[in-house]
Simulated assay, not measured.
Amino acid sequence: MTVQILNYRTEGPASAPPLLLGPSLGTSYALWDKVAPELSVTHRVVRWDLPGHGGSAAGLIGPGATVGDLADLVLALADSLGIERFAYAGVSLGGAVGLQLAVDHPERVESLAVICSSAHFNGAKAWEERAERVRREGLAWLVESANARWFSGDFTVPELVRDHAEADPEGYAACCDALAAFDLRDRLGEISARTLLIAGRDDPATPPAQLREIADAVPGAALVEIPGASHLAPAQCPEAVLTALRAHLDGGAKRGMAVRREVLGDAHVDRAQDRQTPFTARFQDFISRYAWGEIWTDPTLTRRERSMITLTALVAHGHYDELAMHVRAARRNGLTPEEIGAVLLQTAVYCGVPAANSAFATAQRVLAEEDE
């Protein structure tokens, strides 16, 4: 039996860090048309459609749906693409999905950006009434006011208005049910992912005060307000949204660079940076972002333990120049010369005596240099 998943579009290198982009109610992944291609230079971008919107089947959710149901659909999509941990950014209902993912599945969310959204959407009554009327009359009455609800001034995006008109009423109404039931205000303090809030200063649906409420409750969260932006900021002010998202998403590389310097030392990292060329720049970014920003910062293992594993792996593969660097790193991470010797002795058993012989020679030289 084939399991249906959300309709989606991917952009960017398959090996790049994954970034999931969620849409607003009434739109499709076209909401991200002016932003996703730029983000795909450094990320594997996956943008998706809500049930009953764009190419997603309305039957993926039904009456009484919750934002948690939508979050489960996003996780199923990520699983189908082999994506375990990801950065996430979402607008309005898409932002609410991101908040739900961050509180219920913190191990999956690397970072979070919530755009023109809220931890609640002003109570259930208005959404219940909207859902009931959409089921009874369809969407024509709502499409007429789309520009006023979504954009400031005379700005419009005809493709998004068309998406609104073509949305399935049942799928749209089920999404309204999800908004009616949504309220995460008492759980915002549980969010551990790096979090950015982006507010449209002219947004009547989710005004800046609602984003500020989230920023005040989520530990370490940052808030950016975009002048001239209404509810669909990525469509109306894409450059401002891009600037904020790029700075936020770079946090992994910055954190990784800090850890890299702590473990390997400023002198080594400075030399690596000085040798960097346009040809090697993406590889250096990959090292800082993934190896140091994700693996070495994972609290499951201590840095001492990671040093011992790294020494063993380098001996096994005969990478003795790298071994010298990581003997120095092991000392910074608290290993004594005796402990380093014990690790290398273990490699003699499992990696071979010749490999361990070369490793001992390399380590002895490095330790002697440190003593001097």
Rank of each mutant, 00 (worst) to 15 (best):
S118A: 15
G256P: 09
Y290S: 13
H105K: 02
E338G: 13
P37Y: 04
S152K: 12
L188M: 04
E84V: 13
Y350E: 04
R246V: 08
E132K: 03
L93W: 04
P219C: 04
Q100C: 14
F155D: 03
H317G: 15
G123K: 01
A356Y: 09
V143H: 05
I214S: 10
G138R: 00
Y350C: 14
A291K: 01
E11I: 02
R212Y: 07
R332N: 11
H248D: 09
E38W: 13
C237F: 05
P158Y: 01
R332K: 10
P354C: 03
D33L: 09
L184A: 14
P37L: 10
R187E: 15
T297K: 13
A233E: 07
R149M: 12
P204N: 00
N147R: 15
D371M: 12
T297A: 08
T277P: 03
E322W: 11
S117F: 11
Q210L: 15
D104W: 10
E294R: 14
V161T: 14
E262P: 05
R212A: 12
S288W: 08
A174G: 00
V161H: 06
R289I: 10
V366R: 02
D321F: 07
S80V: 04
T336Q: 09
F360E: 09
G252L: 13
H105M: 03
L101M: 03
G98P: 04
N122E: 14
G334C: 06
A131Q: 00
P227N: 06
A222E: 15
S28W: 03
Q276A: 14
A222L: 10
E107V: 03
A165Q: 07
V315A: 14
L179N: 07
S92N: 08
S56N: 05
D203F: 09
I83W: 05
S117D: 02
E322P: 03
R260L: 03
V343D: 03
V91M: 09
D371V: 14
V349T: 15
P227R: 04
A313W: 12
A165Y: 05
A124T: 05
E38H: 12
D154P: 08
D183L: 06
S40G: 09
L77F: 12
R149F: 08
D203G: 12
L335N: 02
E107H: 12
L323P: 13
V315D: 11
E132G: 05
V259C: 08
Y172L: 00
E213F: 15
L39N: 07
L196A: 00
L344K: 06
R9F: 00
F360K: 04
G94H: 02
A215M: 01
A363M: 10
K254Y: 13
R201A: 10
G293T: 04
D168H: 00
Q210M: 15
S15I: 06
G64V: 04
T66F: 14
L344A: 05
R149G: 06
H164N: 13
A209L: 12
G252I: 01
L25H: 02
M257E: 14
Q236S: 13
F151C: 10
R135K: 07
D183C: 09
D49P: 01
D274E: 15
A253S: 08
E166V: 06
L184D: 07
H317C: 11
V97K: 02
L335P: 12
T42A: 08
A222S: 11
V109W: 08
T27S: 13
S358F: 12
Y88L: 11
Q276G: 08
A58K: 00
Y8F: 12
A267Y: 07
L77V: 06
